[in-house]
């Protein structure tokens, strides 16, 4: 760690970080898991989902966008924040149409895994049953908007990693939806299945075709361990 390292605490544990890091990055490096959905390590943070909400010196902030600072006191693993995050996950579930039992993302879906980790059992909020369009026009990739959580990862990946502009958001509020750069569907955009955007979706929304169920139950990423275990393992290891 360089001499201009900053020191702060997360849930009372001292963490050292580089001054240009966010709380999330510093926590990851220290083996402390802060729940997140729209964040992806290869992308600039979007700050969309708020699942990473922590308290910084008592005030709520997004861990994925908030820069570290010497002496800040960060709360992460508290009952209050867990409940808040669970509420967000619950809203994401009821705002879409999620049929996990037959969904090909089951077992590797970050939304589902987060629900398990945060112990969300059955949603109490009313289901919105929105009508959303499925886009199957692309030969190798599909977009099942029922499962979109508007995290914006695909939007950022297309621009930042693929140098394209395939995805974007349209409308606002409850009408907000993921859109593609063609009125006739994703098949008429320049998206390729090899693009990073095509496989960066945390749910089963933007999905490569004909790959479903190839991994047996028991071998899928979150069958045996909760989401975030890879980060926490670092801490356990040292």
């Amino acid at each position: 760690m360089s001499k201009d390292a900053v020191t702060f605490t997360i849930d009372g544990v001292e963490v050292k970080a580089k001054p240009d890091q966010t709380i999330m990055e510093a926590a990851d490096a220290a083996g402390i898991y802060i729940p997140r959905l729209c964040y992806h390590k290869d992308l600039l943070p979007g700050g969309h989902c708020r699942v990473c909400t922590v308290r910084v010196n008592g005030r709520p902030a997004n861990a994925c966008t908030f820069p570290v600072n010497s002496g800040i006191v960060v709360e992460n693993d508290t009952e209050e924040l867990k409940a808040l995050r669970r509420d967000i996950i619950e809203m994401l579930f009821v705002e879409g149409n999620h049929y996990c039992p037959s969904c090909e993302a089951s077992g590797k879906c970050e939304l589902q895994a987060m629900a398990y980790r945060l112990e969300l059992l059955t949603p109490q909020m009313p289901y919105a049953w929105p009508k959303r369009e499925l886009d199957a026009t692309h030969p190798d990739v599909y977009l099942d908007r029922d499962r979109c959580i508007l995290c914006g990862r695909c939007v950022r990946a297309s621009v930042q990693l693929d140098g394209k502009r395939v995805f974007g958001f349209e409308n606002r509020g409850a009408q907000k939806r993921i859109a593609v750069d063609s009125a006739t569907g994703m098949g008429d955009t320049d998206l390729s299945a090899k693009d990073r955007a095509a496989s960066i979706c945390p749910t089963g929304c933007l999905t490569i075709k004909r790959q479903g169920y190839l991994t047996p139950v028991g071998k899928r990423p979150y069958d045996k361990v909760p989401i975030g275990s890879d980060i926490e393992k670092k801490q356990a290891a040292g």
């Binding site: 039992p101 047996p216 139950v217």
Partner: peptide
């Protein structure tokens, strides 16, 4: 063979996953 006692995913188009 199927991954679960009820509603597994073992059999897939063209074969099996395990």
């Amino acid at each position: 063979t199927c991954g679960k006692k009820v509603h597994g995913t073992g059999s897939i188009p063209g074969g099996m996953n395990k």
